[in-house]
């Protein structure tokens, strides 16, 4: 059966006013489509417009030239998506449970989905805790629960596991994959960590430096579950770097500069 396109992106141009006057083109000629249920990773060095793209997909940014459709609707008309930002962005004055319940729709509330998700994520004992008393990893788990609570048809994740310890990040990645599989969610996952993209994605879209556009569309046909830093994954990654040295040169340097949180001062 042919894959049914769920997300169609045809952005001719996205501009911002430049600080020094004039305009700065963030995205130009960005075209791709994503079938239902696919886990797509968007990879590119900093400043390629990845977050701008997610803001357009979520309907937060509507000022661009071109068109975006999600299951045939514009982002504003489409059912609400799940969005996990770079930082957890939990409301500090609300408890963990309240943070999730404020975005929950009626069916999520009736089914106590927030509570169930928190239990699944080992946060059952922290429902009445305020976010500032949680570790970084726990806050991200709560943010992940919030993104999933309405069982959205599409999930947007913007470098959600950046600056976390490797074991914590790995655990969260597994949680994410389990949830996505359970709900057959279409995922757009932004990262500049090639290893992470290879571990998680069904496909990687590489974006060029500004103005951002897709320069390489790479399917990943490695068997799951994928163990991070396994020989198979490392071989795939090395091959990619070897086959596309120009495209991935900047990325490789940036990836090498990623310092796990436990090594940061």
């Amino acid at each position: 059966m042919a894959d049914v396109t769920f997300l169609q992106v045809d952005i001719a141009e996205k501009k911002f006013p430049a600080v020094e006057g004039g305009e700065f083109i963030a995205l130009s000629g960005l075209n791709f489509s994503v079938p239902k249920g696919q886990f797509t990773c968007i990879v590119g060095p900093s400043g390629t417009g990845k977050t701008t793209l997610l803001n357009i997909l979520s309907g937060l940014d509507t000022k661009y030239q071109g068109s975006v459709t999600i299951d045939g609707n514009t982002p504003k008309e489409a059912p609400p998506l799940g969005y996990m930002f770079q930082s957890p962005r939990l409301m500090p004055w609300l408890t963990v449970l309240e943070n999730i319940r404020i975005v929950a729709n009626e069916s999520a509330r009736n089914e106590n989905r927030a509570e169930k998700l928190l239990e699944e994520m080992d946060l059952g004992g922290f429902m009445e805790t305020f976010p500032n008393r949680l570790s970084g990893g726990m806050q991200r788990r709560a943010a992940l629960a919030r993104a999933f609570v309405n069982q959205p048809p599409m999930l947007l994740l913007d470098e959600p596991f950046i600056s976390l310890d490797t074991p914590v990040a790995d655990r969260l990645r597994h949680l994410l994959l389990d949830l996505c599989r359970a709900h057959n969610a279409t995922v757009v996952f932004v990262t500049h960590d090639l290893r992470e993209a290879v571990q998680l994605g069904d496909r990687i879209l590489f974006m060029s430096p500004s103005p951002g556009r897709v320069v390489l569309d790479q399917p990943i046909d490695l068997a799951r579950p994928r163990v991070s830093d396994s020989e198979e994954m490392e071989a795939f990654r090395s091959q990619l770097l070897k086959d596309h040295p120009d495209i991935l040169a900047g990325l490789d340097k940036e990836e090498a500069a990623i310092v796990p949180a436990h090594q940061q001062e």
Binding site: S58, G59, L60, P80, L81, Y83, F85, S87, R89, M91, I102, V103, R146
Partner: peptide, 12 residues
Amino acid sequence: PDLIQVAKAFRM
């Protein structure tokens, strides 16, 4: 603005 953006993204 980050928190307001959360509210908008989740259509509160």
